[in-house]
């Protein structure tokens, strides 16, 4: 055949090829050095990363790719070497992650706290509870509906630890496992007039959309610390360890900690920096201008 690729065929296939090439060329891939950080949905949804990361990105001319998933998956991504750094809140799982050799150099970053929310009428009377485990026992005793994340997230792990401490095996009609993110769980709890354990940040973001109230807070056991861990370069040589350390230095350094303390959407502090001595951040943390989480702010 003299024309193995006849003009007709070219006319038909050329647009397809052209589109493919054009689109690949325009795609914003491979511009700047990229660092991958897996984190929890609640961290991302709080909006904190939107103010915390840009100064770092600009100063270093890099991009931080934030992959927001449940804590379990965020750590799994680190185990597989699919991210360079992990930023989560599940102390036990984090320590195991480091002990198993997947991560190194875990650092405390900040904390917020968990609260128990529920319908304003509080049918189980948890507002009168002295301790978090008492509150859960009251819910179980009353058979009041409780929506669990059920997704192995940090919040879910915290919840399970609390049930264990309370020596209760949560099961039955009243215990609903959603298998979804925090926002979805709050929405479900609102619809069903149920209780739920939530981090304060997500709840504040949702407060205006749901009729739920904070019914119990302040037990130190509800303290929710965030840690940042570099994925072990000895195990995954391809990770960008140098940049991961740089990011960790930034977040746990004065500038990052100041940004965290100063992040007050709606005039309320969501996170409390933990990495530096309190006086290093004195100008901001000592002059709170909104209601602080009970039992947490007072320890500062």
């Amino acid at each position: 055949m003299k024309h193995p690729f006849p003009p007709r065929a070219a006319r038909f296939a050329a647009p397809l090829l052209a589109i493919t090439l054009l689109l690949t060329a325009i795609s914003p891939a491979g511009a700047a050095e990229r660092l991958r950080m897996s984190t929890t949905t609640s961290t991302e949804n709080s909006g904190l990363l939107g103010v915390l990361l840009p100064p770092f990105e600009q100063a270093n001319g890099v991009k931080v790719d934030v992959i927001a998933v449940g804590t379990g998956k965020a750590l799994k991504l680190g185990e597989n070497g699919d991210v360079d750094v992990v930023f989560v809140h599940a102390r036990g799982a984090e320590e195991k992650f480091v002990a198993d050799g997947f991560g190194i150099d875990r650092r405390d970053v900040m904390h917020n706290d968990f609260v128990l929310v529920g319908p304003a009428a509080d049918p189980a009377g948890i507002a009168k509870a002295a301790r978090a485990v008492d509150a859960l026992a009251r819910i179980q005793h009353a058979g009041a509906p409780f929506v669990s994340r059920g997704d192995d997230s940090g919040t879910h792990q915290k919840e399970r630890a609390l049930w264990t401490t309370a020596r209760i095996k949560p099961a039955g009609q009243w215990y609903l496992e959603a298998g979804q993110g925090m926002g979805a769980v709050l929405t479900i709890a609102n619809e069903k007039g149920a209780y739920a354990l939530t981090d304060r940040g997500t709840f504040i973001a949702y407060r205006d959309k749901v009729g739920l109230k904070v019914l119990f807070a302040g037990d130190p056991v509800l303290f929710n610390p965030y840690g940042i861990i570099a994925v072990n370069p000895a195990r995954h040589p391809h990770v960008n360890h140098a940049l991961a350390e740089k990011l960790m230095d930034f977040i746990t350094g004065p500038e990052g900690q100041r940004i965290i303390a100063g992040y007050r959407p709606g005039g309320e502090a969501l996170f409390f920096p933990d990495a530096l001595a309190p006086d290093a951040l004195a100008p901001i943390t000592l002059v709170p201008n909104g209601p602080r989480p009970a039992g947490v702010g007072s320890t500062r």
Partner: peptide, 22 residues
Amino acid sequence: GGNIRWYTRTMTTAIALETSKG
């Protein structure tokens, strides 16, 4: 894609994200 802002966030993952945020 991982729903990375400015990079792999598509319309549908953005919808999922906004829904999860309420």
